[in-house]
Amino acid sequence: MKHNNAKKNLLDTKPKKIAALVVMVALVLYLPKSGLLSPYLVRILTMISLYSMLSLSLNLLTGFTGLVSIGHAGFCAVGGYTSALMWQYLGLPWLVTAICGMIMAGVVGLMLAAPTSRLSGSYLTIATLGFGEIVKMIALNWQSFTGGPLGVNHIERPEFFGITLTTFNGGFFYLSIILTALVTLFVYRIVNSKMGRAFMAIRDDSLAATMMGVDVTAYKMKSFVISAAIAGLGGAFYVHFVRFLDPNTFNFDISIIIISIVILGGTGSIPGSFLGAALLISFPEILRFASEYRFIIYGLILVLMMRFKPEGILGGHSHRPFRLMKGVESYGN
């Protein structure tokens, strides 16, 4: 998708855009089958895709609404556990359990956002921090239901039309690409609507937003719930991908990785989330020798970016013209 977006900038006419899209889709379909990529690489691409999705989710909250969550892994855990346990106890297919995971994460997000949205952003942030720990605590202590420290094992792979998705048949890769594409479209449409404008207005000046008629509390909650639901979907994908889930699967480190991706790639930039994910997910693989220090590097990214380029690599003011809808007369501007 990232390449797709980059191409869009170069190609302005519609037929060319469609052609570019077709080429991209063909390439994506072909890649895992081509033999050019080892299963290991396909796996990394799948992870990049997954983390792009999670970063888009946090970007909506942090980049567009100006609220920071450092417990996003908690929502992945809610989505993951919901999906895994529904499979375990009810034997439902992945699509159903994943949607339930999303809804559950959204509901939990609402419960967390409701008391904190009226307040300044720091309170929400600290609540997300505590939330991540609470989820872990419940997963660990409610043994009869969650499996406690042993977690859930041998989680079934998703199956579509009788085909079980694996890394080898490229199924997981395709699924992750489809999910990420849908989430991208979803986020793109939100940020280019009334809702997205309300989010950004809250980020830039919440009092002025209130005075222009935006119900700031309600929109903070909406942003949070949507963001949590997407994270839940990511979690539901991940646990069926690695086929294992325990209280430590989605720990604080995951939350930090997600926020580092958003900050590095660019707050308020959709392509930024893809770039950030590509960089931060591939670098521990490329720089094996640095893997011991990778977590320190994530922390350094946060600190250094804030100091030198707080808007991130692709964030900040766009130099491209605003895209008016077709049929809007702009008087030559």
């Binding site: 920071v68 930090i256 926020i259 922390g299 946060l302 600190v303 804030m306 100091r307 707080p310």
Partner: peptide, 24 residues
């Protein structure tokens, strides 16, 4: 005169650096 959110994220980063430095 950065935005408040920058300082917040910076302290999150610092926290993570300190914690992981201790671990190493």
């Amino acid at each position: 005169k950065s935005k408040g959110i920058s300082a917040l994220i910076t302290t999150i980063g610092c926290s993570y650096i300190i914690q992981n430095a201790l671990m190493i």
